[in-house]
Design a protein around this nucleic acid. Structure first.
Lengths: 175, 175
DNA sequence: TCCTTTTTGTACCTATCGGTATAGAAGTAA
DNA sequence: TTACTTCTATACCGATAGGTACAAAAAGGA
């Protein structure tokens, strides 16, 4: 996971992976199938570990708290010196070539959108967001800001700049 | 340019390039140097052509018009059926591996930020934006939305969704 | 026309890519 | 010990990566 995260899908070679794991190539194939299926397993771990902040943030009591925690969590992750300065999902989605992985990235994006939309609809029902809020569009916006922060960080933006971006992004709050 | 745009830097092979150009490999090397320097030239063309909308948008008379036109232009580009559904710069920046290109992407991002910041400072001086606006932070935000739209489009978001994202993003306008 | 310069195409280089056949090493059960 | 299974390591596969040497061909100048 660390290797794919740091180097992207195309940028990661079999030798990179076996070196990092300290195993030989046949062991890798016996255990994980091929590069593509190993990547899938690594991405699952990413979702359950470093990227679990999305699911966690949805548990917050208000929509505002959900989004604030989401932005803060992604910025914490992007500026963690222990991990690559990028999002493994974004990094991989843009470096997977013509692979069949492309369709899966689209599906995973749709899952994230659906989870956010559902949470915002609940907020509307609870009077937490205005009744005329477009939950789907706002979900897309929140995810887009998340992606924007990622590309900014990947190309060198420091933590302080990311925090200010998130602060401004919150001003687009439905009212 | 078309090939690098569609396939990213790592995803593009020498054969992809020579096939697309209808020339043989030695001609490519004689004319463009190596893959990396050809990519630089292609990226220059991208900035002067498809991506010139940034520079063009800065000419608008008000800050609001600048940003509205910027968002509209990037969405038009991303949803143009004649061209790849992504931004060549973002696509390449996230699929360039450990290449020395990485530093250049950071520098190019800084150039875009600086141009936007300068334009917003002018707007502040003209009373077009509130005096306490943080021009640098807002420039970062605008570029982040641009990036966010790009990743959304690359992973399958249709034009209509992009337009709604931009609409919401404009609500964060300084006031 | 002849010669020179430039361009082009064939063929090849080494390194590495993702992926695998196969045999030795190590552990288990009787 | 014996027989069997599981794991690991060496060595290799064809394909392709980025990059070049070199000769044929074409173009230009006198």
């Amino acid at each position: 996971m660390q290797v794919f995260w740091r180097k992207g899908y195309l940028g990661t070679s079999l030798s990179d992976l076996t070196d990092a794991m300290g195993i030989k190539r046949p062991s890798l194939y016996a255990t994980f199938g091929n590069k593509e299926s190993l990547f899938r397993k690594a991405l699952d771990r990413y979702f359950e570990g470093p990227s679990a902040y999305l699911h966690d943030a949805l548990q917050e009591p208000t929509a505002r708290a959900v989004v604030e925690r989401l932005f803060r969590a992604v910025i914490d992750l992007l500026s963690d010196p222990q991990t690559p300065t990028t999002c493994m999902w974004v990094h991989s989605a843009l470096s997977c070539g013509d692979d069949p992985l492309l369709k899966e990235f689209a599906a995973q994006r749709a899952v994230a959108i659906a989870a956010l939309r559902k949470r915002f609809r609940r907020a509307i029902a609870e009077g937490d967001l205005p009744a005329d809020t477009d939950a789907g569009a706002f979900a897309h916006y929140v995810l887009a800001v998340n992606f924007g922060l990622t590309v900014q960080a990947t190309t060198g933006a420091p933590r302080k700049e990311l925090l200010r971006i998130a602060e401004i992004a919150l001003r687009a709050w439905p009212k």
